[in-house]
Design a protein around this nucleic acid. Sequence first.
DNA 1: GCGCTTGGGTTCTTCGCGCGAACTCAGCTA
DNA 2: TAGCTGAGTTCGCGCGAAGAACCCAAGCGC
Lengths: 158, 158
Amino acid sequence: MDLRQYDSATCSVARALDIVGQPWVLLVLREAFYGLRRFSDIQDHLGVSRSVLASRLEAMVREDLLERRPYREPGQRERTEYVLTDKGRGLYPVIVALRQWGDEHLTGDAGVPVHTEHEGCGATVRAALVCDAGHVVGVDEVERRPGPGHRLRATAAH
Amino acid sequence: MDLRQYDSATCSVARALDIVGQPWVLLVLREAFYGLRRFSDIQDHLGVSRSVLASRLEAMVREDLLERRPYREPGQRERTEYVLTDKGRGLYPVIVALRQWGDEHLTGDAGVPVHTEHEGCGATVRAALVCDAGHVVGVDEVERRPGPGHRLRATAAH
DNA sequence: GCGCTTGGGTTCTTCGCGCGAACTCAGCTA
DNA sequence: TAGCTGAGTTCGCGCGAAGAACCCAAGCGC
């Protein structure tokens, strides 16, 4: 059976991209990993329009990437912050992989803008492929096979 | 110095997303990793419109993710195929990380559509964070620091 | 009490771009 | 000679991102 016959839409990559492929979503997540939590901070830093940011945050809360949480600093009125859920934190490898690819192929002569280090150890952190047997796997050492949830194109649900 | 003061646009994540954040680009790459090389095969499989696919392929060739290569099967006229460059192959960890996140959080009860295995070894391949000292790093064990190419927001080139 | 400011949005208009369908064009085949 | 196919290009439509203006509730200075 040829992997090329798979229904494209049932692929987890396609389903993931339905959510995180929306404009600004991955950049909002990057801001969240950097520690930003408030609407106006994110909006200032990214330069995204308010209307788009509002609808993206709403979608990200609906998809359970972020949790909308009211909070109150002493002497202040109640405000809203958006904090990462476990599901949202699960996208960190995607962001690291993107940053690493950008560092390797796009930085020109300026050098790397942000270093990512292993806490305590201090060594540079990279995204890598590893197998469950503990080996680091090269891009060309990967084999793909149909799993239990695969579907052929003709039988796709939509 | 606070990471939140960085210029968002100089971040490698943002620069990477300028290219691979365009609609369909990561899905075209997924098809390329699955072995598709021809315009009409990719178009049939993804269901993307011809005009958009043509402009995305052009951009991906311009950005050196794909190489446009004429070829000729015996008795056929010359055709075009698109093959991954090293730079394009460098995005495989991004795709694996996305698929893995989709597998973990989006598949519902249908199971995983595609298995990825270490050639020879047979164990499941995952995207993970590792540090140069060889440790597998958890999402919460990461520290971020300014690198040589970082810029403050006020001094951004654009 | 009264306006000012601030955070967190909503509404409106414009404009770019993704979409589907139709058209093109070159080379192979009947 | 006509038809088919791969690889696009052209065109009109409609969605949705951008930006600017507007809204509103809570604190704060006076």
